[in-house]
Amino acid sequence: MKIVIRFKVRSKKNALANTPHYIYCRLTVNGIQARSDMATGVHCKRDEWDNNFQQIKGDTEGVRLQNQKLQQMRDDLDEIFNEYRKYDKAITAEIIKQAYLNKNDVTPRTILVWYNKYIDEDLRQRIQDDTIDSWLSRRNVLSQYITEVLKRKDVDIQEVTAAWLRSYQKYHISKGNGADHAARSIGSIKKVLDYAVIEGALSYNSTVSYKPPRSKRSPIKYLSATEVQQLATCPYYSDRLQRIVDCFLLQTYTGMAYKELYTFDAKKHLTTDELGIGWIMIHRGKTQELSTIPILRQTRDLLEKYNYKLPVITNQRMNEYIKEAATIAGFPPEKVEDFTTHLARKTAGMFLLNSGLRIETVSKILGHKSIKVTERHYAKILTSSIVKDLKNNGLLV
């Protein structure tokens, strides 16, 4: 492995002969140059530069100091290169350049350090604690991989390439984790590297091209309009079950996930526009995206029934009780197992799309980050809606 350090005088276009020209450092390792040259802060006139000896001509004090600065830069780059070789670190011209440019940064440029910085300095400001816990769990698995498999305490962020992530994905699979679990872990690392780029610790994120494989998506589970009616009209003879069914139905009319249902506060989240239309404006607990939910007649009836204070209990209990209610309502055992608070949210999306709402509108109501998320979750109903529209317009028979 060989490093080549060369200084180049960069001429300005149409510059006069006596105009100072700045000297840049070009770094090459094993024949591959760094992405860009580095400024040295040294300048001279064009005819004062000796390219063969790689220094400024002359013996004045000013020239001597300028040449010393160039030599110090060369020595520092050589030192970094030799240190990386000594500890068997990944070496490229770009890695050596970035290490030099950040040599005065007190923050270690390693993946675990930057993982923690991203959580503490960015994520904690905008996501919920339970989501933070998921990030910390993935961070711990990453630390375990580095310690047990790589036999190291940490790795430089520039070592984390697409190939590196592919090896990490295989590690997850070898541990019995599913493809989606592995993909989420890898996605977290890519976001950490993006943050390092923003903060100037990394020149670019080399992992953007890597798309980890995911599991084949299961068909979406939801209730039909008839099944929602079946659940809504059944007499339960139990206030406990009726309250849970009402909360479930409210989710099917609004698309609120359990967390939004739990944190719902009429004073904070209800509003009425200039046309007199009522809205629920609430941020999704999972993504902090704003859900803009119109208050349908069914929604208003349920809110008024409980004086706008929803009888929400723990998610675990709600899932238990809604299964009990579904059994009483006459659903078969295999369908009863599908009943959870999340089934209500999925049902809401299907209800809205089947009602003819544009996907952009449904995406906004559900608080999805993008329409692509809505399309991915509701691909089946979108296909059937297209067929329905084609038939209504006489294009299909």
Rank of each mutant, 00 (worst) to 15 (best):
T341L: 11
D75A: 15
T327N: 10
K364A: 01
P235F: 09
Y236M: 13
D265P: 09
Q288L: 12
S218R: 15
A257C: 00
V228D: 07
S291T: 02
A325G: 13
K372L: 10
G394W: 02
N30F: 01
I95Y: 06
L352Y: 06
M281I: 13
N67I: 13
K369G: 14
Y22T: 14
Q125R: 12
A90V: 07
G285C: 12
Y253I: 02
R126E: 06
N30V: 09
N18I: 08
E148K: 10
L193G: 05
Q71S: 09
E83Y: 06
L250E: 05
L302C: 11
H283W: 10
E199S: 09
D37G: 12
K211T: 12
D88W: 00
H283G: 08
D37Y: 05
A182I: 10
E360L: 03
R64S: 04
D105W: 00
G31R: 02
E61F: 07
Q72G: 02
G285V: 12
N116Q: 08
L396T: 07
R284E: 12
Q288Y: 14
D389S: 08
D239G: 11
K221Y: 11
A183R: 14
V4A: 14
L123R: 06
T361M: 04
S167K: 12
I244Q: 15
D273N: 15
Q54R: 13
Q71Y: 04
T271D: 14
S384A: 01
T314G: 03
Q144I: 04
G330P: 03
S137Y: 13
A201Y: 15
S11N: 06
K151P: 06
L270R: 14
R358F: 00
R126I: 12
E260I: 01
R345N: 07
A232I: 10
T299D: 00
T207H: 03
N307S: 10
V228H: 06
N104P: 09
I91D: 08
I111P: 14
D122P: 12
K13T: 14
L395Q: 15
S238F: 11
P108G: 03
W279A: 05
L142W: 08
R243K: 06
G330F: 02
Y87L: 07
V63W: 02
W164V: 11
V160Q: 03
F331C: 09
R358Q: 01
Q66P: 06
N116D: 15
F351I: 02
V373F: 07
I328P: 01
A179N: 07
R240N: 14
L142I: 11
T19S: 15
K335F: 06
G41T: 05
L65N: 07
E320P: 00
K309T: 14
M73S: 08
Q128G: 10
D122A: 07
A379R: 13
K346F: 03
P20S: 04
T341C: 12
G176D: 04
Y262M: 13
I371A: 03
R85I: 05
S209E: 08
I23M: 08
A348R: 06
I220T: 09
Y84L: 10
K117W: 11
L395F: 05
I295K: 08
Q125W: 02
K69S: 10
K191C: 14
L150N: 11
I157Q: 04
I313S: 10
W164P: 13
A93K: 00
R184V: 11
I132A: 00
P213F: 05
H172K: 08
T252W: 12
E304M: 14
